[in-house]
Design a binder for these strands. Structure first.
Lengths: 132, 132
DNA sequence: TATAGACCTTCCCATTATGGTAAGGTCAAG
DNA sequence: CTTGACCTTACCATAATGGGAAGGTCTATA
């Protein structure tokens, strides 16, 4: 099948398929006489794997590692589990950070009367005691 | 004061101060005869405002709007509040997305025995029924 | 058979916000 | 006068994705 079909069936855009090939995440597929890329079921499976990993927030680099482990029939599941665990920690750190921002902002919004007067605690906080 | 001092006093790196000037977020400061940028207290205040807004997760573009409102003595606080509210919604959407990833991953990690055997539910999920 | 339209190819550019580096000018202290 | 710490501009890199241009190919239909 052509790249468009592979894109549709995997959920990875044609643009990104070429990109993944360029950075070596996937191997270059066969070409037709007119230089079109040709994909089979195996390639689509790999692309779906990548898509799923990316959807779960793994970076392309982490995805590459996971892909390698997937294709290594003798890998230890502990390795995969460690990567997943580290990723969870990273995600939770990010979530905590965002939660911190949200609570600060909610407090500020709560304090701001939000009418047509210029007085605004939100801006006052941003200015943090700066005059003007 | 020179850019290094302004950077130290505002928490914005010299590199970023020049960048903000380049994109028009801040106005170009005066220069010495030897072409050094010269900053005063006012500029440092503006930089601190920017730093705080960025820390709260506002994009540079949103920061520009907030900065405009800050410097507009006749602005309505409702305008600022709306921007903050929209930003909260965006942050909460992002948080929900990350939480979804985390719970999926936690489930998978829980299912994975994580020893030296190759069998791994995490990879199986990524492959989503793909053979190999 | 000719042509239109939907594909494909490569190459270049843009995004967001930040950091790094290199080559060169300036300033202050010793 | 030299040294080291500063400043200047300019260019490159990041991560992952999209957009578009210029040109080749394939297929269905008039």
């Amino acid at each position: 099948m052509n790249i468009g079909q592979a894109a549709e069936r995997s959920g990875v855009s044609a643009k990104m398929i070429r990109y993944y090939e360029g950075i070596g995440l996937i191997t270059a597929p066969a070409r037709t006489g007119s230089n079109y890329r040709v994909y089979g079921e195996d390639e689509v499976h790999v692309l779906r794997f990548i898509k799923r990993a990316r959807t779960l927030g793994f970076s392309v680099e982490e995805t590459a590692t996971l892909l390698g482990l997937w294709q290594d029939r003798s890998r230890a599941s502990a390795e995969v589990r460690d990567i997943a665990k580290e990723h969870i920690v990273a995600l939770e750190t990010k979530i905590a950070e965002l939660n911190g921002m949200v609570s600060t902002l909610k407090h500020l919004v709560h304090c701001c009367h939000g009418d047509d007067r210029p007085d605004c605690p939100i801006l006052d906080d941003l200015a943090q005691g700066n005059p003007q």
